[in-house]
Design a protein around this nucleic acid. Sequence first.
DNA 1: CTGAAAGCGCTTACAG
DNA 2: CTGAAAGCGCTTACAG
Lengths: 338, 338
Amino acid sequence: MAEKRGVFRVAESAGVSIATVSRAFNEPALVREDVRKRILEVANALGYVPNSAAKALRLQRTHIVGAVIPTLDHAIYARLVNAFQAQMSASGYTVVVLAVGFDNTHVAASIKQVVERGAEALMIVGSIEDDELRHFLKTKRTPVVQTYSYASERDHPAVGFDNAAAMRAVIDHLLKLGHRHLAMLAGPTRGNDRQIARVGAFHAALAQAGIEAGPVIEKRYTFQHGIDALGEIRADHPRTTAIVCSSDILAFGVLHACRGAGLSVPDDMSVTGFDDLDFAALLDPPLTTIAIGADEMGRIAGERIVVALEGGPAEGLCLPTRLVLRASTAGPRARLMM
Amino acid sequence: MAEKRGVFRVAESAGVSIATVSRAFNEPALVREDVRKRILEVANALGYVPNSAAKALRLQRTHIVGAVIPTLDHAIYARLVNAFQAQMSASGYTVVVLAVGFDNTHVAASIKQVVERGAEALMIVGSIEDDELRHFLKTKRTPVVQTYSYASERDHPAVGFDNAAAMRAVIDHLLKLGHRHLAMLAGPTRGNDRQIARVGAFHAALAQAGIEAGPVIEKRYTFQHGIDALGEIRADHPRTTAIVCSSDILAFGVLHACRGAGLSVPDDMSVTGFDDLDFAALLDPPLTTIAIGADEMGRIAGERIVVALEGGPAEGLCLPTRLVLRASTAGPRARLMM
DNA sequence: CTGAAAGCGCTTACAG
DNA sequence: CTGAAAGCGCTTACAG
């Protein structure tokens, strides 16, 4: 005689049917007070935990959502996922995280895997640049909320911000200060709509100001690459007076390298970042950068996903960003002008 | 006539039984070449994805593991989860993350929830200080791997390091430099075995050196708390010449506050951290700290969990830590002695 | 090499 | 208020 399991075991011990056990947990009002109490006690004593797979199969709901991000090894994404996870937990969902790197062009295989593992919806950083995946998600009708970049997508809502406008604000600030020789230090643009938008804004702003195009260097997001970049810029574009970085991480490296090279920031070189990490305000000099609300973005993306999963109309949202002026920017040759 | 779903639909379209469809995916060698090919094509055209819940129910395996951490908002845990996730992904598992804060005494409810959601095993930061949870996991026979702290646990293996020894190395270094008035800036100790071990090491080292006990201040892990702490230490313990921080984050705040207060580091004050975040080397002065291998820890914890889940003997591992000497430490009043 | 059938642990109309 | 039964979509002995 096989050992009974799950509801069957509880039902046997409590002397009721499995239907009643199920109701005691899910529709307590339908079960007589004393019976319900007995069931709950027995279940507790037995260490009963409902089987999630059976439940999911029966209800056709897993309550699992996927968070697809480049990496957890960058504070901005970690914060995003942290807030997202908290929000989803509060709504009764479980978050599985999937780090796929910064290039969104070949992510179908890994994302399919999380859908196969039960993800009913996806929060994804940036736009999906993978046609196979687009098609897959469309036919599966998997709700998707895009974050970080905002676009009035027909396929799915986006809870992000206007990357071009944000970068534009930085450049305009530098132009207004009198800079005419700007360089941009961007992250890898391949399959990354945020970086592409920011680089585009750099070119557009300079063109509009009638200034010759400045160099754009692409580097992966590490301090060391920021350090290396300063060397390259000084060698190839010695007249540069301002370096616009597409990430605080890169800007930190540049700042560090400036110190090493005996360049004063902002007197000899203005430097800007993007993200407004906690460190930005703490550096010497504090970094002028763009503040994005990663926490809020994660929280709202979570809300929208819940709405989509309950069948409601999940609308996108374009969040504001803020240019945070700190001491790493000043007019060119500020020292001479004093 | 109801629309067929899942394997049933594929089977119908391919003109085979559902058993054969299942085999085509899971035991391809058992299916005739041309039949298998046809099934795979049909499945692909139909956008078939196996139902994870049904599979899990039938196989009694979810392939889901939980990562229980304080928060993703701290680089060390984010890195740990990042490495853990990569490792688990490679082994065919999915990671759900759960952030429970720094106090491990009342985490039963949320952790039970992830087990209910299907987690077959848990990676958890620190020891479990919640008796109810201990009991729950034991009766459910849920494999657990503890990280960050190492203890030869009877209940579950630990892939961590010796927090006391690591902190001890820092103190010994400072004592050797001649410091006699040390203060410690720790994280919240409640329900946190790592912090308790480190504070214990601080007291023990001073006692053993025959030095009067230095003050221990507990603060949450933010820059601002590090900044605040310097003020308190200078006010209450003005003779302090070295501040031992239990986290780089706190040390960064202290460093920043020292600059603001016109204190030279290390000449007027030595400061040490813990974690060796990327920033530690980049600061001015660079921070003396303890390097812990968060990536390696995550990866190995993943390996051990896989072993435990496959029924093997998952052994714990005590990883080495390394005292990284940088310019934020020197002998007391180094300036005067020059 | 393939198929019919059982069963994984739940929930929920349906009947009482 | 409670129970018997069906069925969610899989996999796998078993039989052929």
